[in-house]
Computed example of a mutant assay.
Amino acid sequence: MQSALPSRWMARSGLLLATTLAAGCASAPPSSPPVAPAQAVESVAPPPDYVPVVRYGRYTLVELAPTAAQQDLLQVVDVAVPHTLHASVGDAVRHVLQRSGYRLCDAHDADALLTLPLPAAHYRLGPVVLHDALLTLAGPAWNLQVDHGTRRVCFTRAPGAQVAVLEGPLADLAEQVELLQRQPAAVTQARYDTEHQSVTQRLADIELALGERLVAGDLRPLQDRLAHLEARQAQRPVSQAAPRPPAAETPRPKPAGPSFQLLGVELRADERFLSIRPYGASALSQVRLLRVGEEEDGWRLETIEDGSATFHRAGERLRIAVPAHQGGSR
């Protein structure tokens, strides 16, 4: 009886072990997750308004892009033309283009525009973009053409304006044709010869009649009177005035300050310039824009302040007032 219990327990243990091994062999091993095929990494383009920046210092970010003032004709200008200078439209265009890097083209297509007097409303422009300032000076009858390769600015007539220009001469021609049609018929050669002979005969009769009336006796009193006047004139002594000595030219004193006049402050591409002209200058082309650090007649511009400018020459420093009504103040 005691030997039968261990044998039965060993039989049950062996059966349980066999069942466990069979179940382990029948179950499939866990499957590993599928590996996705390798995909090519595509570069994503930045958005159109993306502007790269770089860090300067600890809290400063600087955009790596040109400013609007550095892009062609997008720079801001503030222009003041002195009213004492009777400028033309061409003078104003050249003055506005100063310091912009662009210049007016040499073509003569726009001479009709550039030789016109500058309107009073255009003596003060700005602050405004340079492109718009040029269009304002030209007016709606002209188109602005910019050659960025040679940095030249040209004006051409707008299509509608060209038609209007041609309509004027056509109207004049039509009026001339109408006047010619209203004129009387031409005189024939035979009638012209007859009238000419009649007028010639009448002139000959008048000359003959005048010759018969004019006798030598009528001229005698006039001749006697003329001789009497000549005799009296000969009896008067002629006094010769001694020539005056030439007046000595007094040398003009040299001005103590600069030889140029300050007109005001103008703006070009967010930078302030001092507008100056030589004393006695009467043309807008003689006006110069002076930047801080530049010289004129030996005077170096040191500062541009509100209402004044400081110059330096040979150890001498001079502060000159700037007219407030000329140019912009920024």
Rank of each mutant, 00 (worst) to 15 (best):
P159Y: 05
Q261H: 08
P169E: 12
V44R: 06
V265S: 15
P33E: 15
Q70A: 10
V163W: 06
E295H: 02
A112E: 13
D111A: 08
D111V: 11
Q70Y: 14
T250F: 02
T67Q: 07
P37Y: 05
L284Q: 01
A87V: 08
R58Q: 15
E266D: 08
D106P: 04
L61Q: 07
A283S: 11
H108Y: 04
Y192F: 15
D72S: 02
G327S: 00
S100T: 12
H131Y: 15
Q75M: 09
A309Y: 02
D306T: 14
S3C: 00
P159K: 12
A241V: 10
Q183L: 14
R291I: 00
R152W: 06
G298S: 14
Y50W: 10
V77T: 03
L179R: 13
A234H: 05
R157Y: 05
R225W: 05
A164I: 07
L15S: 02
R182C: 02
Q183M: 13
A36Q: 06
V54K: 15
L214V: 03
E175F: 10
D106Q: 09
P169R: 07
W299S: 01
A11P: 00
D205H: 07
L289E: 11
L104R: 01
D147N: 05
V44L: 12
V79W: 00
V128I: 14
K254P: 11
H108S: 08
Q261Y: 03
A4C: 06
V238P: 05
L135N: 11
W142M: 09
T84L: 13
Q162R: 13
A216K: 00
R317I: 07
Q183F: 04
T84D: 14
E212Q: 15
D91Q: 08
E42I: 06
N143V: 13
P243I: 02
L166C: 01
V238K: 07
E294L: 09
V89W: 08
A69N: 15
A161R: 02
D193E: 15
P47A: 07
R191T: 13
L229W: 09
G328I: 15
R220N: 02
R317Q: 04
V89R: 04
S32G: 12
D132N: 15
H312Y: 04
Q181C: 13
A87M: 00
R55V: 08
G211W: 12
L219D: 08
G90Q: 05
A138D: 10
R319E: 11
R55G: 11
Q98R: 07
A314M: 14
L125P: 01
T303N: 09
S3E: 06
P251I: 03
V44K: 06
C105E: 08
H196E: 10
A110K: 03
H228Q: 05
A186Y: 02
A92V: 03
L229H: 10
S88Q: 08
R55W: 02
R99I: 00
A107P: 07
P258L: 01
S13T: 14
